[in-house]
Computed example of a mutant assay.
Amino acid sequence: MSDRESIISIEKSIRYISAHVKSHGREILKKYELSPLQFVALQWVDDKVGITIGELSNRLDLAHSTTTDIVDKLENGGFVERQKYEKDKRIVLVLMKDKGLQIIKEVIAKRVSYISEITDHLSSEERDMLPGILESILHESEKKSDE
Rank of each mutant, 00 (worst) to 15 (best):
M96F: 06
N76K: 15
H121I: 01
L74K: 08
D88W: 02
L134E: 06
E81W: 12
G25R: 01
D3L: 05
D47P: 00
I51P: 03
E135T: 11
T68D: 10
I103V: 15
H64Q: 04
L95I: 02
D61W: 00
D98N: 12
S2F: 04
R127Q: 12
L130H: 02
L95W: 04
R15W: 12
D98R: 07
E147W: 01
G77H: 08
D146C: 06
E81R: 15
I91A: 01
I91R: 04
A63C: 05
D120E: 11
G50E: 02
M1T: 08
S18T: 12
V40M: 08
K89D: 12
S57G: 12
G100R: 06
K99M: 09
R15G: 05
G78N: 09
E140N: 11
I28V: 14
E5F: 00
S23I: 07
S136Y: 07
E117V: 01
H139W: 10
I7F: 10
S65N: 10
K144Q: 13
H24E: 15
D128Q: 13
I103S: 05
I28K: 13
L56F: 02
K99N: 14
R127Y: 03
S9Y: 06
V94I: 15
E140K: 07
I103Y: 05
R90L: 08
A41K: 04
I118V: 15
H139P: 02
G50L: 04
G100E: 14
I70R: 08
K144E: 13
L93E: 08
L34P: 00
G50R: 00
G25N: 03
V49Y: 09
S65V: 08
Y32R: 04
I53C: 05
A19F: 06
E55V: 00
T52K: 07
V21L: 10
Y85Q: 01
T119V: 15
T68I: 06
E27P: 05
V71L: 15
L74P: 03
G54N: 04
L134F: 13
L101C: 10
E81N: 14
R59C: 05
I108S: 04
S2I: 01
E33K: 06
I51V: 13
G77W: 12
G78A: 13
A41H: 09
S141F: 13
G78Y: 13
T68V: 10
L138G: 07
I137A: 14
P36H: 04
E55L: 00
S9H: 13
T68C: 08
T52G: 05
S136N: 10
G54I: 06
E86Q: 09
G77I: 03
R15E: 13
S57D: 10
V80L: 11
K48Q: 00
E135D: 08
A19K: 11
E81K: 15
K110F: 12
S124Q: 11
D69Q: 08
I137Y: 08
L62G: 00
G100Q: 11
S145Q: 10
I8A: 02
E27G: 11
T67H: 05
T119Q: 10
N76D: 15
W44I: 00
V94A: 14
S2Q: 03
D88F: 01
K99L: 14
